[in-house]
Design a protein around this nucleic acid. Structure first.
Length: 934
DNA sequence: GATCTCACG
DNA sequence: GACGTACGTGAGATCA
């Protein structure tokens, strides 16, 4: 018989809190409740024989019961000060122990427990509810018991009768009459449990009793019952648990799984629970005492977990004790692996190459994993290992390998088979490598992206790091295989035995990560974010990178030369003004000349190194005072920046094979869900100055084509209006008004007509400030006004748009409670420093928390648009290619003849990407160059 | 490798 | 009232 354990999390927390003396971590965080909770839960998980287990929490104070009776639980004192920070930590404990964790807004934990108990009974399961809360006693039945974890005793039917004087099914009637002062359930005055039980015993149930109340002999009791019949009925509604909570996480996901040693020890270490840590580590050591084989037993946790009952849903697969990695050097062996891959349906794939640049590195070998511990490596272009010498006088020979064309022919059907999912870790890289071998891959999953969706920027997402974190497994590093520094060799020179161990492990770990992360995406409600936003990006970004954008090398070179000539002139002038030779590019030397030697005032020293600051703000101030040297340096710096970072660098980045620039988009870097671009970064091509815009003019369309730029208008401000629910701003966006002018009119109390441009500029700065988590200091600096004046503006803004203040406060609270905030589409943005002790760091984190849902929400929306566009273009018969994404802008290349149709379609898809409480607007431009299209 | 500066949204 | 500041990135040059 299957057995479900449901743990009343809140009850557990309070018991742990009151049972243990105050206890704090070295950073001052109180941990007594977490400690007690963790050890109770560990013990519970170990000792019981249940095959399903879950901890149920209350999600918030407000539930549907407050709608029935506003006073419900209204007199509850707030949780003790030192308990509040422990709530999120307790949830972490549950996760670290790999136990399912459920809560739902609007319902109490008790309702969820009732719902799951009913579902389990219907499936013929036995249920144990770990709690001694009397409110749960109504659920007791033959196959449902309560378990008091402190007293270690079961509460069965008899125990309920002892407590309430009636059997479980009549408990609610008794509670309805007796009321409950703790929960502020009114009941009927003057009637306690004893009397209530007597009455129910006599009349059968509450409805009968109320109907026949007139028959009661005692006049006073008769009158109160008649007077308070309605109170009794409401009370019964309050105490009756809902066993039909809709859309709950499926029972199947509660399958019991043993914890992962890495996650668990990391948590215990963070909490500084030394005793528990020692216990866990000791047990783990004992379990893995059997020696590991070099290339077989991969994972320390498998030994620990192999004996327990396990879940496919919530845990990594147990690798067989003797895993085998196989080198594939003949066609028959390869056929066997391809067949195994078809049977498996999900495989991991990894490529080994000669370098890191996806556009130039050459394929050396391919590894595949078809199951835990089952992986192979197919060497393709290995040469003789470096140390294989001419000991016998013969020439070094390459090892036997299957010809690439044969491998490609055998793999091609597998890689495009729609019934076989190909999993990679950063598979976008492998797609580039394989594409140059004429191989396409679909369908795809990417464990690096999955990890990012779950944990954001809270940790890195490299495979080595994830293997350590989730499996406590040390992977073979690239360095041990290829060395480092000058003596580093390329992978094609690695001996095959070492190459096998390294490459097969990568595929093996990737497949195991996939299993683990897939379950987490489901359990942690992040599957939709992954599937609708991030997973579609993988193949799309690959296409964009592969497409590249055409850059006019001759134009860039001409610019470089122009900049160089002007810099030479400026250099002479600067040296004359300074009266000495010095390195203009050295802030240190410049600072010393300006402030030490020339004795200019208004310098500021950096806090860290004590060096003079010479940034643009400082130099501009000096220039405005009439100093020529800083003014010339500013000009020189602008040219130096454009030349070194852009013109010179971009010329080098043009791929000789394609004549285009191929950036690399990173999908797993930012804290907010934005993409980033590097090698080269095409998301920061100049536009703000005329000189800079000349560089943008060098990005052009192929002959017969045009570039189309489409960018969202004011997305972030629209998101502010949406997430903070600011009525006045929403109205302004609906009316299509000038949002900065409206803001100025409100804040400064002037009419929009004939507005002073200065006021609009100030309002614009305030609006930006709002997006960034405004501070008086920041606004003052931006506008060059006093702190006090800036404070006045902010106060005026808050007075006119009071919703913004509420948004800021609830967002900060959300970050504090959870360690992350959610974007409107459900992405988690982690804000770890929000719990920090340093007030400056915390303030920083608070501003980041305020900004994240806005910046992240915008990132989510453009991802949705991007995901929808390829199909929309195809359906419209348009052949445009998406080339770039710059946060709120998309750049396409289209045949001239399709330009207008493409622009119209792109605009439409972008504007329909999400439904917010404000309209989304996209603006498009068509031209031969990016500068003119934008 | 850290620091400073500056390009973008 | 103290913290020391607008949010998010990547790249090049200098300097230790």
């Amino acid at each position: 018989m299957q057995h479900l354990f449901l743990i009343d999390g809140s009850g557990f927390i309070f018991r742990a809190y009151h049972a243990l003396p105050p206890l704090t971590r070295s950073d001052g965080t109180p941990t007594n409740a977490v400690s007690g909770f963790t050890s109770m839960l560990m013990k519970l998980v170990e000792d019981n024989t249940a095959d399903h287990i879950a901890v149920i929490f209350d999600a918030g104070r407000r539930t549907f019961r407050n709608d029935l009776y506003p006073e419900y639980k209204a007199h509850r004192p707030p949780a003790p000060e030192d308990l509040i920070p422990q709530f999120p930590l307790v949830r972490q404990a549950v996760q670290a122990l790999n136990v399912a964790c459920v809560e739902m807004e609007g319902f109490e934990a008790d309702d969820l427990i009732a719902t799951y108990a009913r579902q389990a009974r219907e499936k013929g399961m036995k249920v144990t509810i770990v709690s001694s809360d009397k409110d749960l006693m109504q659920l007791v039945a033959d196959d449902v018991e309560l378990w008091d974890a402190m007293k270690n005793k079961a509460i069965n039917r008899d125990a309920v009768i002892e407590k309430f004087g009636v059997p479980p099914e009549k408990v609610v009637d008794v509670q309805a009459l007796a009321g409950d002062s703790a929960d502020n359930v009114p009941g009927v005055p003057g009637i306690g449990v004893k009397t209530a039980a007597q009455l129910i015993e006599e009349y059968g149930d509450l409805d009968t009793l109320l109907a026949r109340a007139g028959e009661i002999k005692q006049p006073k009791r008769r009158q109160t019952l008649l007077d308070n019949a309605e109170a009794a009925r409401i009370s019964r509604q309050l105490v009756t648990l809902r066993d039909d909570v809709p859309d709950v996480q499926p029972l199947e996901t509660f399958t019991k799984a043993l914890p992962e040693i890495g996650t668990l020890t990391a948590f215990l270490e963070e909490m500084e629970f030394r005793r528990l840590l020692a216990t866990v580590k000791g047990r783990h050591q004992a379990a893995v005492s059997e020696p590991m084989q070099a290339t077989t037993s991969r994972d320390a946790t498998q030994a620990m977990t192999a004996g327990g009952s396990r879940s496919d849903q919530t845990h990594t697969p147990a690798a067989p004790a003797d895993t085998a990695y196989e080198l594939v050097q003949d066609i028959d062996t390869l056929r066997r692996w391809v067949e195994a891959a078809h049977t498996a349906g999900v495989i991991a794939i990894d490529t080994e190459t000669t370098g890191l640049d996806p556009m130039t590195a050459a394929l050396v070998g391919i590894s595949l994993a078809t199951g835990p511990g089952q992986a192979c490596y197919i060497p393709l272009r290995h040469v003789a290992p470096q140390d294989q010498g001419d000991l016998l006088g013969g020439a070094p020979e390459a090892p036997p390998q299957i010809p690439m064309t044969d491998v490609a022919d055998l793999l091609r059907p597998l890689l495009t088979d729609r019934s076989v999912l190909k999993v990679g870790h950063n598979i976008k890289y492998d797609l580039h490598i394989l594409a140059r071998e004429g191989l396409a891959v679909t369908p795809l999953d990417d464990t690096m992206v999955m990890s990012y969706v779950l944990d954001g920027a809270s940790h890195g997402h490299g495979m080595d790091e994830l293997a350590k974190l989730h499996f406590d497994h040390d992977t073979i590093t690239f360095e041990t295989v290829c060395g480092k520094g000058k003596s580093q060799i390329t992978f094609d020179r690695v001996p095959l035995d070492k190459a096998l161990a390294y490459a097969a492990e990568d595929a093996d770990i990737t497949l195991r990560l996939h299993h683990y992360l897939k379950a987490r995406l489901f359990n942690e409600r992040m599957l939709t974010v992954y599937e609708t936003l991030d997973r579609p990006m993988v193949g799309l970004l690959f296409d964009m990178e592969e497409a590249g954008i055409r850059a006019d090398a001759a134009a860039l070179l001409a610019l470089s030369e122009d900049f160089a000539a002007r810099m030479t002139d400026l250099e002479a002038e600067i040296r004359t003004l300074a009266g000495e030779e010095f390195n203009i590019a050295s802030p240190k030397q410049l600072g010393e000349i300006l402030f030490d030697r020339m004795g200019l005032k208004g310098g500021k020293k950096s806090a860290k190194t004590g060096a003079w600051s010479t940034d643009a703000e400082v130099l501009e101030t000096l220039a405005a005072e009439g100093h020529a040297l800083p003014a010339r340096v500013l000009d020189w710096r602008a040219l130096q920046k454009l030349k070194s970072t852009y013109t010179d660098a971009l010329i080098k980045q043009i791929n000789p094979r394609t004549g285009r620039v191929h950036t690399s988009f990173a999908q797993t870097i930012t804290t907010t869900g934005r993409l980033s671009s590097s090698d080269p970064n095409l998301q920061n091509i100049p536009i703000r100055t005329e000189e800079g815009r000349k560089i943008r003019r060098a990005f052009v369309a192929a002959p017969g084509h045009v570039l189309i730029s489409a960018d969202y208008s004011q997305v972030e401000l629209r998101l502010v209006a949406h997430v903070a629910d600011i009525a006045a701003l929403k109205q302004a966006f609906h009316d299509g008004q000038d949002i900065h002018a409206i803001t100025a009119a409100q804040v400064f109390g002037v009419p929009v007509e004939g507005m002073d441009p200065m006021l609009r500029r100030r309002a614009k700065a305030i609006n930006f400030g709002i997006i960034y988590g405004i501070s008086a200091f920041g606004l003052a600096r931006q506008l060059g006004i006093s702190n006090g004046e800036a404070k006045g503006f902010i106060d005026a803004y808050f007075a006119k748009f009071p919703e913004i203040k509420a948004y800021m406060e609830r967002t900060k609270a959300e970050a504090r409670d959870n360690g992350y905030v959610l974007t409107p589409l459900g992405r988690k943005c982690f804000i770890p420093e929000i719990q920090g002790k340093n007030p400056a760091m915390r303030a920083f984190a608070e501003r980041a928390a305020i900004n994240a849902p806005i910046q992240g929400g915008a990132a989510d929306i453009i991802k949705k648009a991007m995901a929808a566009l390829p199909d929309a273009l195809r359906a419209a018969g348009l052949s445009a290619r998406m080339l770039l994404q710059v946060h709120d802008e998309l750049v396409f290349e289209a045949p001239e003849t399709e330009a207008t149709a493409t622009a119209v379609l792109v605009k439409q898809v972008m504007e329909q990407a999400a439904t917010l409480s404000v309209p989304l607007i996209a603006e498009t431009g068509i031209a031969a160059s990016w500068a003119e299209a934008h």
